[in-house]
Simulated assay, not measured.
Amino acid sequence: MSAPESPPSRAVPVRLSRLHTWQLSNATHCGHRLVAEALASAGLRMAHYQAMAALAELAPPTQQELGRIIGVDAGNLVPVLNDLEQQHYAVRTRDPHNRRRNIVQLTATGRRALADLDGLVAQANDTLLTPLSSAERDRLHELLSRITADTPNRCQE
């Protein structure tokens, strides 16, 4: 029995290929898939990485602040933090100024794990950007940073 044939590849309609938003969306989808696969190899998801990255760079936030910073609602953040605590990557403690709130901190184990995750994410980004030279990657980053710098003012939810 022969293997099933793959569906024929379809040409992208020209009017779509001319849209920057369409091109950005496709690149984003591919990038997210590559990063998700890399993080899955370490047993984590994007929300875990986002939380760890934020905790590594910011003064210890409350659990609610962390959710706002990384764009994860409270109901979805709790299992993420439970996972991180279970792996000893993060710890939640009561806020001494408000006992109803938790402060979240990255542990030393979490910082070491984040360094490994950073390597996996960098490899995924390198795979995505393979067609570009180093100078082109720098220029793309510069341009995307300019676009996203003012996004909250132009793209209110």
Rank of each mutant, 00 (worst) to 15 (best):
G43V: 07
G71P: 06
R92F: 00
L44I: 08
E65P: 02
V80L: 02
Q86W: 13
P79K: 10
V35G: 01
N26V: 13
A40M: 04
A59F: 10
G31D: 07
L81R: 02
A40R: 15
H29N: 10
D73K: 14
L58E: 10
D83G: 03
L77Y: 07
A90V: 08
A54E: 06
A56P: 01
H32W: 10
A90H: 04
L16K: 11
W22F: 13
P79Q: 02
L39M: 00
A38G: 00
G75A: 09
E57H: 14
G43L: 08
A53Q: 13
G71Y: 02
R15V: 11
S17R: 14
L66E: 06
H32M: 15
A59R: 15
V12I: 15
C30E: 11
E85Y: 01
A36E: 02
I69P: 04
L16D: 14
P13M: 09
L24I: 06
G31W: 05
S41R: 15
L81Y: 11
L77E: 02
L81Q: 00
G75M: 08
H29Y: 13
P79I: 05
A42I: 00
W22M: 06
I70R: 01
Y49N: 05
L34F: 04
A47H: 13
I69C: 12
P61N: 05
E85H: 04
H88C: 00
A47W: 00
H32P: 06
L16W: 15
L77S: 07
A59N: 12
A27N: 03
V14A: 12
L39S: 00
T62E: 03
H20V: 15
P13G: 06
V91Y: 01
M52S: 06
R68H: 10
Q23W: 11
D83F: 05
P61R: 07
E65G: 04
Q63D: 15
L19W: 06
G75N: 09
S41N: 13
S17H: 14
Q50F: 08
L39V: 07
A47V: 10
T62P: 03
A42G: 07
H29L: 15
D73C: 09
P61M: 00
V72W: 10
Y49G: 00
S25G: 14
W22D: 03
V14L: 03
R33L: 08
T21E: 13
L66M: 03
H48A: 01
L24D: 06
V14Q: 13
